[in-house]
């Protein structure tokens, strides 16, 4: 290791810029999550619909978005979608769409496995009591399914938060983008990237701890 003197002034002086990026990060993640939760539910319902055509489309969508890198999806949406539809999208919106679809695919899986994992005997028990299928779903199946879905959903959220960094590649001005700007402006990549790494860590780690806590609590009950 060479003797190196750290110059964190580069970070302090540009903190406002970095924090601006952070703001975008914190905006993107919840928006993408919201999109993903809703679209994912639609996809899951299609898949469970029983109609072969709809189910196949849903499965295709899910598998496609889960087997390809997020970077490919982001760049595809940003460069290809405008060409296909004729609508120009800002980097922020394209990024949001790509992230949202990505989350939707994973959420569709979570919804599906959550619902199908509830033992059929639960439904039988409910029907035997005289409930309608809708009541059985609402009172017995869904509450249990939701509890099963919460741990993987929270893990998904943490991953999503980190994945917002990928949008820097298409020019979305979030934290990672600003990091690269500042690093090249100040010629201090070590300090800047280390500081940004620490910022991500400080934001993500508590959420990861929360996820672990949720996993532990919900596991005991099921």
């Amino acid at each position: 290791m060479t003797h190196y003197t750290w110059h964190f002034e580069a970070v302090w002086e540009n903190l406002p810029l970095l924090l601006q990026g952070l703001w975008d990060t914190c905006l993107l993640a919840p928006l993408a999550m919201a999109v993903g939760l809703v679209v994912g539910l639609g996809v899951a319902l299609l898949r469970l619909s029983g109609v072969w055509g709809l189910s196949a489309i849903a499965t295709g969508f899910t598998e496609l978005f889960r087997t390809t890198p997020l970077l490919v999806q982001v760049i595809w949406v940003y460069t290809v979608l405008p060409l296909l539809t004729g609508i120009a999208l800002s980097p922020f919106v394209s990024g949001l769409v790509a992230l949202g679809l990505n989350v939707a695919a994973f959420m569709a899986e979570i919804y599906r496995t959550g619902i199908t994992s509830i033992d059929y005997s639960q439904k039988q028990g409910a029907l035997a009591l005289g409930m309608t299928r809708a009541q059985a779903m609402r009172r017995i199946i869904l509450p249990q399914a939701v509890r099963r879905m919460i741990p993987p959903m929270t893990a998904m959220w943490v991953a999503l938060f980190k994945d917002t960094s990928i949008l820097a590649t298409i020019g979305v001005v979030e934290l990672m983008y600003q990091a690269r700007v500042v690093a090249s402006d100040t010629f201090r990549p070590l300090e800047v990237f280390t500081a940004v790494g620490i910022i991500y860590f400080l934001l993500t780690y508590p959420q990861a701890l929360l996820v672990n806590w949720i996993y532990d609590r919900l596991r005991v009950h099921s």
Partner: peptide, 14 residues
């Protein structure tokens, strides 16, 4: 707890 993109840039540049 850190994004992969941040990691690769750190390893290569920092």
């Amino acid at each position: 707890s850190t994004p992969f993109l941040a990691q690769i840039l750190w390893v290569f540049y920092a």
